[in-house]
Amino acid sequence: MKFTDTSEKGFQKLIVKELTSNSGYVESISNNFNREFCLNTQQLFSFIEQTQPQKYEILKRKGERAFLVRLDEKLRKLGVIEVLRKRS
């Protein structure tokens, strides 16, 4: 007889497995979370590098920290939705 984990933790694992295996999500590791900026900077920079390689090169030249500081300022001032809508 096969054991089925019906606990909340088991359900969470099932959801994560489904999302990462079949829906293109990437699981975040808590050690990669930057507390100062409240996000996973490794995933952020990986995403930018994959989707906007020219912009990523500019970002690297100017400095990742400078980008994070500016992003943080924009998020605090405008909010997430407005920042995602605009390209400034």
Rank of each mutant, 00 (worst) to 15 (best):
M1C: 13
S30L: 10
L84H: 05
K55A: 11
F67T: 00
I48K: 09
T20C: 10
K2G: 11
N31L: 14
V83S: 05
N32H: 03
L84D: 06
E64I: 06
T6C: 15
K77V: 04
T6H: 15
N34G: 03
N40R: 12
F67H: 02
Q12M: 12
F67M: 01
K60T: 04
K13H: 05
Q52G: 11
V83W: 15
E49H: 10
L78C: 10
V16I: 13
V69F: 09
Q54T: 14
E57M: 13
L78G: 02
R70G: 06
N22E: 04
L78E: 07
V16N: 03
E64V: 02
K2P: 14
K62P: 06
K74V: 02
I48Q: 08
Q42Y: 08
P53I: 08
E36M: 11
G63C: 06
F45L: 07
Q52K: 09
K9E: 07
G24S: 00
K9S: 12
E73M: 10
Q52E: 06
Q54S: 12
L84Y: 06
F45D: 04
R85Q: 10
F11T: 00
E82F: 03
T4L: 08
I48R: 14
I15G: 00
K13Q: 09
F37I: 09
E73N: 15
K62L: 07
R76W: 06
A66P: 10
I29K: 00
E27I: 04
I48E: 09
D72Q: 08
V26C: 07
Q12V: 13
D72G: 14
S46D: 15
G10S: 09
V80Q: 07
E64W: 04
G79I: 02
G79H: 02
Q54I: 13
I48L: 07
E8M: 10
L75F: 00
K86Q: 13
Q50I: 05
K74G: 02
I48T: 05
D72S: 13
M1N: 15
L71Y: 01
K62N: 04
K62Q: 05
R70T: 11
G79S: 07
K60V: 09
I29Y: 02
V26F: 05
Y25C: 10
L68V: 05
E49P: 11
E49G: 15
E18W: 00
A66L: 09
V26G: 01
R61Y: 06
S23E: 08
K17L: 00
Q42V: 10
T41I: 14
P53D: 04
L68P: 05
